[in-house]
Amino acid sequence: MNRLSTFNIVSLTLGFAFLYIPMLILVIYSFNESKLVTVWAGFSTKWYGELLQNEAMIDAAWVTVKVAFLSSSLATILGTMAAYVMVRRGRFFGRTLFSGMIYAPLVMPEVITGLSLLLLFIAIGLDRGVLTIVLAHTTFAMCYVSVVVSSRLISFDDSLEEAALDLGATQWEAFRLVTLPIIAPAVISGWLLAFTLSLDDLVIASFTSGPSATTLPIKIFSSVRLGVSPEINALSTIIIAIVTVGVLTASIISKRQITRRLQEEAAA
């Protein structure tokens, strides 16, 4: 139908191949019978079984999920508060500086963030473990949350909260009963984003983790240096599945939110 369609198909295929073939190979080899990663010896799920026996791996996975859950929840609270203050409380002294400082970590190289946090933890004598990773991940994820939430708050009608106050609500009630339910989809996307960022992170976690707590990315990275095992492939496949589900959920939520907002705006 279109003169460019062949060209389009080729470029689409190339693009997607470039992005997804490596992952596809990984997924396929996770079902390989052979111990040798590069030789196909028939279909098997035995590596998934072995993975479940690998306590170090299971521990690391558990730490990762715990860290991701705690840090994303904390980052969501702090990031939402920061966004709220910046967008809703108008101009206050030092606002520009404050907002600049909130967003700076977005462009800061991770190595620097990790290093500075490490120095801080050593300086205050905090033993490295789950707590330090949680704090570190909260620090860098909250900027992302506050970006997501403030972009929603910018289009939020100020008078809604004033109406709540006018009807006798306290500031906190106005936020909890009016603002929060309306911006909830953005807050949830922010949380999911923070969760994924924490799951993914290798650099900052390596700086801030200690012998007592290792996250999955660190575990994978260090075991891969000793050679790729099919177990790692199996593990990676599981992670890919989880991340895919997370991303899909987030995009469905934000799409629904946009549709609903359009409806409501058409009404307003």
Partner: peptide, 20 residues
Amino acid sequence: VPPNQRAVNMMFQSYALFPH
């Protein structure tokens, strides 16, 4: 006296109905 403690209510120019 803050707005939430005044025996005054306002009907906003934009109505400001809670959409949810």
